Simulated assay, not measured.
Amino acid sequence: MTLLERLILLFAESGYLAVFAALLLCGAGAPLPEDITLVAGGVIAGLGFANVHVMAAVALVGVLAGDAAMFLLGHRHGARIMQWPLVARLLTPERYGRVQEKFARYGNRLLFLARFLPGMRTAVYVTAGATHRVSFLRFFLLDGLAALISVPVWVYLGYFGANNREWLAMWIGRGKHGIWILAGLLAVAGLVLCWRRRRHARCGMDD
Rank of each mutant, 00 (worst) to 15 (best):
T131Q: 11
G173V: 11
M1D: 10
L24F: 01
H200M: 08
G78V: 09
R198A: 09
R98N: 07
T131E: 06
M82S: 13
P85C: 05
M205D: 11
M1E: 12
L86Y: 08
L38S: 03
N51S: 14
H200S: 10
R138D: 00
L86T: 12
Y106I: 05
L185P: 00
F139Y: 03
R197S: 08
V151M: 06
V188N: 04
A128L: 04
G66S: 06
A69T: 11
R198W: 02
K102S: 08
A69M: 11
L73K: 04
L64Y: 00
I179F: 00
G190E: 11
A187I: 06
E101N: 15
A65E: 08
L182P: 00
W171D: 10
W195F: 08
Y96A: 14
F160T: 15
G42C: 07
S14N: 15
C194V: 14
Y125R: 12
Q100I: 07
G27I: 05
H132P: 00
G119V: 04
G175M: 09
A189Q: 12
A88C: 07
V151Y: 01
A45F: 04
M55F: 02
G144F: 02
R196C: 04
W195C: 06
F20I: 06
I36E: 03
I172C: 10
A45Q: 08
G62P: 05
I81V: 15
L113I: 12
R115P: 00
A123I: 03
Y106Q: 07
P85A: 09
V19D: 00
V99H: 03
M205E: 14
R95C: 02
V61F: 02
A123Q: 03
G175Q: 06
H53A: 13
E166C: 03
V87K: 06
G144Y: 01
V99A: 05
K176E: 09
E94T: 15
L25W: 04
M1W: 08
I44Y: 03
L4M: 13
A57H: 07
K102M: 09
